[in-house]
Simulated scan of single mutants.
Amino acid sequence: MGYELTTLRTRVADGVLWATFDNPEINLVDPAMVFDLDRLVDEAADDAAVRVIVLDSAHPEFFLAHWDLTAVGEALPRDLPSLPRVLQRLAALPKVSIAKIAGRARGAGSEIALACDMRFASAERAVLGQPEVSVGLIPGGGGTQRLPALAGRARALEIILGAEDFDAALAERYGWINRALPDAELDAFVDHLARRIASFPPEAVAAAKGMVDPITLPGDQALAEENRIFRAATTRPETASRVGRLMQLGLQRPGPVELELARYVTEQRWDKP
């Protein structure tokens, strides 16, 4: 049993909804995925058989690459739900959400993981990053609001302003993820934890989470302002120039730019045509 979605494959078993991102070629976060995430939250909220949601990926190198940078401004569907609002709804569900990261999770991909209640990552394959500032943007899906609560102010600023890639070990040390686990152990660990939580009385799980949420979830107004600044920044000439240069090099396509994005944004001579 599962839900009929375009960019996510789903199944429900033993109280756990397994939702696997599958959006070729590199799992970009695009409008179709936002629509699917919005519907996933709706369906899971009303599904008594679902007590825990696990988000993972079908792509061995990308959990979620980042926001689709061609999907801005007039290119966006008018009825597209706001990604920050969708993620706030996911975070506030009286059910538990877990991100299982085995591959790259940058930009909006990292922010989707940040909206989950817990994050576990492959020690060998996970790479996390918030590269937006390097092209003139800011995180627009909750990164500036959720990272300080997890990593602290100074480390959150290091992550966002440095725009570096973080391996799983350092991300764990900074509090970005719960644990970095050997790749061979990740699936079994998350499976066990998800089924264990799903076996407990749902009223108790929801009540415990409901007490934690007001202390830890960012406010709707701050999330909306962050997204407004992000959208405004997409119209700046310097941002368009930097994104355009990276697109020419291979951004948003399989290849070295997406695999080593932090290195490519550092090596560019942005002052040269």
Score class of each variant (00 low, 15 high):
76 L>T: 08
7 T>K: 11
4 E>A: 08
145 Q>T: 10
8 L>M: 06
71 A>G: 15
222 A>R: 11
101 I>G: 00
200 F>V: 03
241 S>H: 09
88 Q>R: 11
265 V>E: 10
125 R>E: 02
99 A>G: 04
182 P>K: 02
28 L>N: 02
115 A>T: 00
75 A>M: 07
1 M>V: 05
56 D>K: 00
167 D>F: 01
80 L>A: 07
112 I>A: 00
194 A>K: 00
11 R>L: 04
135 V>H: 09
112 I>M: 09
60 P>C: 10
110 S>K: 10
5 L>K: 09
203 E>M: 07
252 Q>A: 12
181 L>K: 03
197 I>F: 06
94 P>H: 10
63 F>D: 00
157 L>N: 09
102 A>S: 10
209 K>H: 15
133 V>Q: 15
235 T>I: 06
147 L>P: 02
182 P>C: 03
218 P>A: 10
234 T>E: 12
179 R>A: 06
224 A>W: 02
39 R>H: 13
122 S>R: 00
237 P>T: 04
78 R>I: 13
115 A>I: 07
266 T>F: 11
38 D>F: 07
142 G>A: 08
164 E>C: 09
101 I>F: 06
243 V>Q: 03
171 A>F: 05
24 P>E: 08
35 F>I: 07
1 M>N: 01
2 G>L: 05
158 E>H: 14
4 E>F: 11
193 L>P: 01
81 P>T: 08
170 L>S: 08
107 G>W: 11
82 S>D: 07
37 L>Y: 02
95 K>N: 14
8 L>P: 00
238 E>M: 14
210 G>S: 10
1 M>G: 06
68 D>I: 03
66 H>V: 05
82 S>G: 09
263 R>H: 15
248 Q>H: 13
80 L>S: 12
195 R>Q: 07
113 A>Q: 08
65 A>C: 15
203 E>I: 01
136 G>A: 14
185 E>W: 03
235 T>E: 10
28 L>M: 15
175 G>R: 11
266 T>M: 14
185 E>N: 01
68 D>K: 05
123 A>S: 06
172 E>G: 03
129 G>C: 14
236 R>K: 10
209 K>T: 11
150 L>K: 13
164 E>F: 13
63 F>Q: 00
208 A>S: 09
138 I>A: 11
265 V>I: 15
219 G>K: 06
59 H>G: 03
131 P>S: 10
74 E>S: 12
128 L>M: 06
246 L>V: 07
196 R>V: 08
56 D>A: 02
78 R>D: 15
81 P>M: 08
17 L>M: 05
